[in-house]
Design a binder for these strands. Structure first.
Lengths: 193, 193
DNA sequence: CTTATGTTTGTTAACGCTCACTAACAAATA
DNA sequence: TATTTGTTAGTGAGCGTTAACAAACATAAG
């Protein structure tokens, strides 16, 4: 097989690992299948990752990257209302372009097998929580808002996004997420302002 | 081993299967481990279930049972406000008493491996959706309610319940779900009325 | 009440298969 | 020449499942 740098190969391997989970669930992610798809031998996988856990850790890094981009995109917006809108729509824009990520981005169970994975997952989750909480808090101080606990409101928003994405996935991606995004932002507007 | 009727043995096997998933994720559910815990031989498992899929189907039946009891409990309530409250609190009361069910009750991924499982899952999910939608619709006709799409509102409520349960699980069940239930019902009251 | 008969629920031993992973070696690149 | 990225061949362990047999139980005739 053509020789690639570790960095290049790692990217391809993680991409394909995500695809495998997307198509057949975590159960079907095996080194054998992974090697077959990447078109290198199984031992070659181990040139670029310590073990299977290390590959799953790589998937977590992708989620971490998403979270990073989300954060940057939100910081470009000025008003808290715009930020809240961007929080929702960024998720949907990203997932519409990266459907395969729907199977891992909210799949906490996959990352509960080892303490290393669990720890990294927890850091990502608390970052996610913090991000939305700060937006809600900003909304609360600058706008007239219903007297609802910002922590609970954060969870309602994330929970709703998760539900829509789950429904979208179960429906075989049969509707437009981006359109839904605007409708959802609108609904929250009605509810909380 | 002591002889039991198929019915008795089936119940024990499904119980233990749920426990295994609760403790180690679906990955760790194997016939070998299951037989060890139930304290019968592996082939004895096959006296009571056709194959592994059949066992997972049994887990789905448990979820179906829960949904049934939820439905009955709600129908005992009279006003739509009480029904909405019961929808939320029944979930939390049940899971507080059956912590091991937290790992399967919202774990759609487990049941996506075969068309048989997927079909049964879909029926459960649409029943769930229908149940909460009817409550919301009843609230809408009888009470003064914000002009928000009942379908979206249903998803917000289910999504929030899911988030709280996920958080509870990730925290190692470190807080009281039932207390949270009342707080949540209160929050929804403020938001939608 | 005992004994024969069929059914159900268990056992031991083994099947072929896939799993994650490694040792030893080869070719490409620096 | 040394390092990196690939290969082939094979490890032991666990997987779901089955064949063959044994003991417990239910039923009904002697």
């Amino acid at each position: 097989m053509a020789r690639l740098t570790t960095e290049e190969r790692q990217k391809i391997i993680i991409d394909e690992a995500i695809n495998i989970i997307h198509e057949g669930g975590y159960e079907s992610l095996s080194i054998r299948e992974l090697a077959k798809r990447v078109k290198i031998s199984e031992p070659a996988i181990y040139r670029h990752f310590l073990n299977k856990e290390d590959i799953v850790l790589g998937i977590l890094s992708r989620i971490s990257d998403f979270e990073q981009h989300l954060s940057e995109s939100i910081n470009k917006k000025k008003t808290p209302k715009e930020k809240l809108n961007e929080f929702i729509c960024f998720h949907f824009r990203f997932l519409e372009k990266n459907k395969n990520m729907t199977s891992v981005i909210f799949a906490e169970d996959i990352f509960m097998q080892s303490s290393i994975l669990k720890e990294k997952l927890m850091r990502i989750l608390s970052h996610r929580q913090k991000l939305i909480f700060e937006i809600i808090n900003e909304v609360k101080t600058k706008n007239k808002i219903k007297d609802v606990d910002p922590v609970e409101l954060s969870k309602i928003i994330i929970g709703f996004i998760r539900m829509i994405v789950l429904e979208w996935k179960l429906s075989g991606f049969s509707f437009s997420l981006e359109e839904k995004g605007n409708s959802i932002a609108n609904t929250f507007g009605k509810l909380i302002f």
